[in-house]
Design a protein around this nucleic acid. Sequence first.
DNA 1: TTGTAAGCGTTATCAC
DNA 2: GTGATAACGCTTACAA
Lengths: 330, 330
Amino acid sequence: MPMVTARDVARLAKTSNAVVSYVFNNGPRNVAPATRERVLAAAAELGYRPNMLARALSAGSTRSIGLIVPDICNPFFAETARALEDAAGEIDHLLLICDAALSPVQEARHVRSLVDRQVDAVVYVSLQDDPDLSLFTESRIPVVALHPLPEGAAASTLTIDYTAAARAATRHLIEHGYREIAILNGPTDSVGARQHERGYEQALAGHAVTAHHWSSPTSRYAASQVAAEELAAHPPRAVYCVTDEQAFGVLHAAHSLGLRVPADVAVVGLDGTANSRVSIPPLTTVQQPTQALASRAIDIVRDPDARDTPVHELLDFTFVARQSCGCHEA
Amino acid sequence: MPMVTARDVARLAKTSNAVVSYVFNNGPRNVAPATRERVLAAAAELGYRPNMLARALSAGSTRSIGLIVPDICNPFFAETARALEDAAGEIDHLLLICDAALSPVQEARHVRSLVDRQVDAVVYVSLQDDPDLSLFTESRIPVVALHPLPEGAAASTLTIDYTAAARAATRHLIEHGYREIAILNGPTDSVGARQHERGYEQALAGHAVTAHHWSSPTSRYAASQVAAEELAAHPPRAVYCVTDEQAFGVLHAAHSLGLRVPADVAVVGLDGTANSRVSIPPLTTVQQPTQALASRAIDIVRDPDARDTPVHELLDFTFVARQSCGCHEA
DNA sequence: TTGTAAGCGTTATCAC
DNA sequence: GTGATAACGCTTACAA
């Protein structure tokens, strides 16, 4: 298949390649209706498709947006990727999904790769609390992080209010009457982790509740290991997990120790992945507004105003009570 | 940040941009060691990074490989994507992950998009039994499908032997002594579905076993719905599911009906995702050789010989007995 | 061994 | 309203 070029189309339409470009871009110059028709007809006849590489090289935009996630095998990030792909598709951009595979080294490689690939913007979920954004800023690539960033970081952020979410989840557990409530937090001391912590503490304040502080990597297996150990030692009556995956791990640990959920241990998660509906038992969780997060992220990153002045936005979450907390007993 | 070009480097190294190119590509011409050093030093000083777009436009290779999966939220495909990203990274290629989101329309859009983006090759897991490969063949983009294709399709295939896998799984259930065994197959009549079916039938042949034929979309929720209905009606003693996700759905359905696994219903899956270790109960499954599949897929698609003559390869699977079938009772 | 220059297929500026 | 033509930054004959 010899590649059909704009020049070929121009030849057939008896005009110049410039006009072909004008037609396919609706500008920057006008073309006479008759000429436009001839060009379109010729293009159709030859099966012409503009060469995106040449277009990108010349025009300076690759019409692509990068996404870096810590772990594509975590369905929450897969769902995020899907929502972003939709949002990007609507503005006719390609989403480049990069999976850090839980490795900071891999993550750094992807940052480099996206810069090299000249993506127009980046949606970033980092493994690090304070990721190095210099490569992006040097290349003037706008970035929006889907998690809180330290004060003064050179990127926009777009998240739910984790403090409020943790508070709501913990409060719900307290209202069930549980008096020994653990928080299963993430593996590192990050801004986000501290927000969960704070919400949990705020909910506990003034209640005669014993706190338990656990932490595990954000994976089902790792959480299961940690939870199994903790549950065997000083079993709390309830656990608030900062991700659904960790909650699923707790569910598994409880099961393997012969503990019933919620009769023996109550569990609440955060993310509201599709799987939370079909876990054993169905998981009570804080639902992230994945669609809204995605479309807003694309808006932010394409907003010329936000390019230089990072914006920080909070979106609303929804608390979903299912069986694992003790509501809706089966 | 004014972009640093090869010309800038050449100027600083007191040589020509051609030599800069020779240095960065190790060819096609040799460069005197001294000159090479000067170029490298100049490049380092200026922070030169070759412009991939210009390189791709000129050289004709984008150093990228496309991947189309039916559903990135299914961890098996996420794990596949991760393995492929590793394999692609080793040859310094970017993996473009495209999620069809269970929509054939979306899938077709991605095919178009990958062709437009001029990827060097494509790894394809299609929703269709007989996907339209013409766009790829016209553009001479080599394709390897990770599932069986109808006779004569213009792409290589690389899979495990699904017939043998289904046979092994079903046979295992028979050896447990179960006499009512269902197969939960995929939603469409595809080559792959027929292979599962055949393996299941082969295992059953000559045994006094009652067969049950179920089918559901490949998602936990959908499988759970179908299984709940079937289990409420004529509960079989065991179920072989053609994917782990469907098996998880059966687990959930059983739980919500108050059926114990494996005491009341035994379940076997196929894929061997990480989650199968931590399901409730841990899932007996046929483990796909994900890493091997990925690296072999990259090899095939880059093999100049296989470019024109599709190859069809079978890789070995591993049967992993855990609790859901009745082995290793907790 | 190195430099010159002609592409690669667009976009966009200028004249006309 | 349209047609030459110069970028965009690189690769790679071809010359020197």
